[in-house]
């Protein structure tokens, strides 16, 4: 490995909503170019973990280090302080996030959705932002749809616009949160193929998914989470082969369709 330092390092992450502990000391490391899938039953903390990495959630203890920079908090005189909005926004722009429910901006066209961050965060001029947006939209197979509004697109197309929107920002890391769960079955494959293409291009991806076959095919490593903890972290062959923990075996038995 030419990069000794990991791209993302999560150490001892704790998160609770009121008295409910959602993450109980999660450790996770991603190298540059690595594709890691997180599996686990609902309520195991997978989505919350992604949202912490994207700073959409606060967390009470632990560190998240992205490309050498501790994100979300600073330590002043031994006390943790949440960073200011401007800093948080800058750090968020280093990661891309694709949501389960697409969350496109309904008042902007497909191209407008991709361009907003390029213009206002990356400060590209209009022409340049437009050409980057067009390039990414054609990368996800939607070159002919760039002037369509989200309401004029199918779910699968909307999700591909959302992927283009995240990747056009040239993030160091892309977080994908159950990106096919809200889609009709016949639209799932087009989105998975898009993600697969991006993975093959060398992007670093952290994927929360219920698509076991996809997780096995696309990932370098698969992480199994249960009740706020990482239970298994191994290459897919091991996870889906003879799984070691009883909880994982049980989970896989229940998800097998």
């Amino acid at each position: 490995m030419e990069n000794v330092q990991p791209l993302l390092e999560i150490r001892g992450l704790h998160k609770h909503f009121g008295s409910v502990e959602v993450l109980k000391g999660v450790d996770l490391t991603l190298r540059r170019g690595e594709v890691v899938s997180i599996i686990g039953s609902s309520g195991s903390g997978k989505t919350t973990l992604l949202r912490c990495v994207n700073l959409l959630e606060e967390f009470q203890d632990g560190d998240i280090v992205l490309d050498g920079e501790t994100i979300g908090y600073s330590i002043v005189n031994g006390r943790r302080h949440r960073l200011r909005d401007r800093e948080l926004s800058r750090q968020r722009s280093m990661t891309g996030m694709v949501f389960q429910s697409f969350n496109l901006f309904p008042h902007l066209t497909a191209a407008g959705n991709v361009m907003l961050g390029l213009r206002k965060v990356r400060r590209f001029g209009k022409e340049e932002a437009r050409s980057i947006a067009e390039r990414w939209l054609s990368r996800v197979g939607l070159a002919s749809r760039s002037d369509h509004y989200p309401s004029q697109l199918s779910g699968g197309q909307q999700q591909r616009v959302a992927i283009a929107r995240a990747l056009a920002m040239d993030p160091k890391l892309v977080l994908l949160d159950e990106v096919t769960s809200a889609l009709d079955p016949e639209l799932v494959q087009e989105v998975l193929n898009t993600v697969k293409g991006i993975a093959d291009d060398g992007a670093t991806l952290l994927i929360v998914t219920h698509e076991m076959r996809f997780a096995r095919d696309v990932s370098h490593r698969v992480v199994f989470m249960d009740q706020g903890q990482v239970v298994e972290d191994a290459p897919p062959a091991e996870i889906f082969g003879n799984s070691r923990s009883q909880r994982l075996a049980e989970f896989l038995r229940n998800t097998r369709t």
Partner: peptide, 16 residues
């Protein structure tokens, strides 16, 4: 709410 989060996720500040 999700649309607002998407805006924050690409790095727009609260005012933006």
């Amino acid at each position: 709410k999700g649309v607002v989060e998407a805006a924050r996720a690409i790095g727009l500040t609260r005012i933006q």
